[in-house]
Write a protein that binds this DNA or RNA. Sequence first.
DNA 1: AAGGAATCTTACCTTAACGTAAACGAAAGG
DNA 2: CCTTTCGTTTACGTTAAGGTAAGATTCCTT
Lengths: 131, 131
Amino acid sequence: MGEHMQIGEAAARTGLSLRTIRYYEEVGLVKPTARSQGGFRLYTEADLARLELIKRMKPLGFPLEEMRELLELLHPEAESAVPLSEVQRGRLVAFSEAAERRCRELKADLATAEALAATLRERLGAGSTAT
Amino acid sequence: MGEHMQIGEAAARTGLSLRTIRYYEEVGLVKPTARSQGGFRLYTEADLARLELIKRMKPLGFPLEEMRELLELLHPEAESAVPLSEVQRGRLVAFSEAAERRCRELKADLATAEALAATLRERLGAGSTAT
DNA sequence: AAGGAATCTTACCTTAACGTAAACGAAAGG
DNA sequence: CCTTTCGTTTACGTTAAGGTAAGATTCCTT
């Protein structure tokens, strides 16, 4: 019945540091499902999945504060049947657009980086095999 | 014969701020070719090109300090006939490898970002067209 | 019961790459 | 000459996302 894991294992499995996990809780990103009698954080697999999702979201470049908001839109605390208010949908649209913009930015950055990397390789290829 | 431009024009043409250009000088990235009698920075087209190169290099994610070193390897101050010392070549190889690593990282980030962006789009597509 | 390993909270520290403000000098046009 | 406009130096401020340290507790195993 060991459904819960402590922060150490959560860190090991996600590749995040203890500090990072605690910090994510501090800013409201991931609250451990339970605490032990003595106050140790206890994470479930679902919590783990959330931590991993946050880690995957990093490339989007959103500040943690916005990530928190986005996660709330995606996984409402209350399993409400209410789909999404108009305002919430608007926020989601904004996030979606920001994500697309970020993708385009990443694409441009990649192209630029590859061009420069190619230049460097060339430079090296042309290098003299001196004594 | 106005071969030189002041910092304002350099900023306007590169899209960099005055502060940024001065800061780049401070850390040894770009020194203006000349100064006016009164001390105004005067940039040539070559200086401009250097500023633009630096701007393009941003996606490589190198700290400015390393950029400085890389630029020195690529555009040696003294137009020396000496190609490159072994040590210098080694540094260049390291830079090249770092650039390739960065490219792979950007590619991975892009893939991750695109997957998430797709997820967000889906979420929106599924949204109810409520009253 | 003991004791090492894991965790807790609190709180100060770090860092790069600029932003911003102040007070003052230069350049250029009328 | 005068006055805008542009530029100069100096120096302090900013910011997110943790790192790191200290001292106290809890957990687990023996």
